[in-house]
């Protein structure tokens, strides 16, 4: 569903953020993408959702090139940034209606989906309030609900657990697992290795813009814990 082939991204000033990176996320994969701060996780994710141009390589979403046919790709995916800045002038429900309108979601479908996810993330009672009155966690929950509004085939999430309370984090983990059980895919970055180890079916580790490990969770960690493997692989000494 997501094929990243040899992408390289260099920022202005010459810093190579991602170098010749390739990975594949298949149907049903819950794919964890881990690495230190500044390793290139967010750059890869932003390139995959069409937010950042890259100078070499290719990214295909269900066979569509993100460079050649970005609209077709974006119709299939939902993206959640690491720090979701939302339209503060709108109320929660107005924002969700806006996203649903963009994806042309019918009134019946949006009513059902918003109701379902808002209930699970305990945000139903706050949806009529302006987003400007929301806490960081509430904004994160709203962005998560908006990601599910159009019933995407692929979820691309950047640090989705940051700012969530334990109950909401648990709810999100459950939702993510259910999503992949339907044959859909999730590609997400995280710093929380315990979460990655517990829920991911596949894991990739990135260091200084290059992939240093990739495979099923069992393959990557072997007989050690994911934390031990991660520290070993990312140790500069």
């Amino acid at each position: 569903m997501i094929v990243i082939e040899n992408i390289t991204k260099t920022y202005t000033g010459g810093k190579v953020a991602v170098r010749n990176l390739s990975l594949t996320v298949e149907k049903g994969d819950l794919f964890g993408f881990i690495g230190q701060n500044g390793a290139g996780k967010t750059t890869t994710i932003k390139a995959a959702v069409g937010l950042l141009p890259f100078e070499a390589g290719e990214i295909l979403i269900d066979g569509h090139s993100i460079r050649q046919d970005p609209i077709a790709c974006k119709k299939l995916i939902a993206y959640l940034p690491d720090n979701p800045d939302l339209y503060e002038a709108l109320s929660g429900i107005q924002y969700l209606n806006f996203i649903a309108d963009i994806f042309r979601v019918s009134k019946a479908d949006r009513t059902e989906r918003i109701g379902k996810y808002a209930e699970r993330l305990e945000l139903s009672t706050d949806l009529n309030s302006p987003i400007s009155s929301y806490s960081h966690g509430m904004k994160q929950k709203l962005a998560i609900i908006s990601a599910f509004v159009h019933d995407p085939q692929i979820l691309i999430l950047d640090e989705p657990f940051v700012g969530l309370d334990p109950k909401a984090a648990f709810a999100l983990k459950t939702i993510m697992k259910e999503f992949c059980e339907q044959g859909k895919s999730i590609f997400f970055s995280t710093h929380v290795l315990e979460v990655a180890e517990k829920i991911c079916t596949k894991i990739a580790i990135i260091k200084n813009g290059e992939l240093i490990a990739c495979g099923s969770t069992d393959e990557v960690r072997g007989k050690q814990s994911l934390e031990e493997v991660f520290l070993e692989l990312t140790d500069d000494e």
Binding site: A89, N97, F98, D101, I102, V105, K107, R110, N128, S133
Partner: peptide, 29 residues
């Protein structure tokens, strides 16, 4: 900041252009 006490949610369906214009107007005001 203002918090709404209203419980019922309004689900309105519009074209993407209308949604974008509505967002622009709300942002403006």
């Amino acid at each position: 900041t203002y918090k709404s006490g209203k419980k019922s949610l309004l689900f309105a369906s519009r074209s993407p252009r209308a949604a974008l214009l509505d967002k622009e107007v709300k942002r403006y005001l």
